[in-house]
Design a protein around this nucleic acid. Structure first.
Lengths: 210, 210
DNA sequence: GACAGCGTACCAACTAGTCGGTATGTGTGA
DNA sequence: TCACACATACCGACTAGTTGGTACGCTGTC
């Protein structure tokens, strides 16, 4: 939509400053506890600018969920595991990649939409739907590789590629809760290890010593 | 402490009415979005009574987390799987039991402390610690059965009983997020199926057709 | 001169928490 | 057995501060 933006891309617009701040602040404090003033302070933008770009706090939440989807889509699209020829390697590589990005503080590596959906699923249907779309969209990409891996390895199973893909997301979301409970990524990484081992067992792949 | 309470047990005290209401309201709306007035209305108790029993909203949250631990401890202690002689059957029975209690509305079967920790881990250390204690206490019980199962089945592995026990909790917490995203327990149940299959594979147990 | 982008000042509603007060025991000593 | 001291449980109007949101003005650009 911004095709004709000349040469001022280095100067971030208020809108994108707010969105960037929202990703961090909401992950740290949760959606309800995040005030509009928090977001304005964190993004160094005034309230007038905030409500110029977003018609309400809920509207910002939906935009933030969509922005999160874009950011993560780019992050994973650029990840190295896509080049692996065996789709099973791509699935396992995805999990390895998810382990490598467990760095920094807890709010830095946890998931915005997983956090937001907890607080909004019952009272803010529009936000919930935006978060659910984000999770399902991401799962669909994993599903494609899982599906290809099942075909390539001749797996006929009672579980579906879709169900396993969603399970990977459940493990990751749950791993983030353990990280929040324990104050660091260690338990989250161990949970991803278990998930990796599960998938190796499902596909009869000899396990690597960790 | 209430040894000499004669015959008025049917009349619930204000304190326990508030705690019961808190379990439901906080699971539905989240902690920050739950107001003290919400809790007073839901429990049919006045504000004066609320602050007589709890010195702050945060104090209530901690009490609610502890109350949640007591309630769930009782629930699982009374569950049928404890009678199984093989500890592995007890572990699998635990998962089966967790599947059977996925009934009613989403706030009815999801986890209070998993929900609360997401909103409080960074800003309310006391609440976070109470939630973390609840999760770890529950995991410790699973760990005991896993540990016994490893011994009974001669499993020597690179993963620990503790790590697998925590992984079960990660899967369950993540399953609840999927339930919130999808509006029902179906995806959560499927994730528990995957976890069950994983444990069967780890212990070389022939899998039951589901 | 119209309009996007933004700043400042402000408001009505809401929120956690307070405070003075009532009702109902409960133990104790004369 | 009565009076008194004290404690627990509870009530609900009130307040100080916060919150999402609005009104309106300024400035550069097409």
């Amino acid at each position: 939509m911004d095709a004709n933006m000349p040469a001022r891309q280095q100067k971030q617009s208020a809108r994108s400053k707010i969105l960037d701040a929202a990703l961090m602040v909401i992950r740290a404090k949760g959606y309800s506890a995040t005030t509009v003033d928090d977001l304005c302070t964190a993004s160094d933008v005034t309230k007038g600018a905030f409500f110029h770009h977003f018609k309400s706090k809920d509207d910002l939440a939906i935009a933030a969920a969509n922005y999160w989807s874009e950011m993560t889509d780019e992050l994973f699209a650029a990840a190295p595991y896509h080049t692996f020829p065996d789709p099973l390697d791509r699935v396992l590589g995805y999990l390895d990649f998810r382990k490598t990005i467990l760095t920094g503080t807890v709010p830095e590596f946890t998931c915005l939409v997983g956090t937001m959906i907890q607080e909004t699923y019952d009272s803010h249907p529009a936000i919930r739907d935006a978060c659910a779309r984000s999770i399902r969209g991401h799962a669909a990409k994993i599903e494609a590789d899982i599906s290809a891996a099942m075909k390539a390895h001749g797996i006929k199973a009672e579980w579906s590629a879709r169900s396993l893909a969603l399970h990977t997301q459940a493990v990751l979301q749950g791993a983030f809760i353990l990280a929040k409970a324990s104050g660091g990524p260690k338990l989250a990484a161990e949970s991803i290890d278990h998930l990796r081992r599960y998938i190796e067992l499902l596909f009869n792949r000899p396990q690597k010593k960790s």
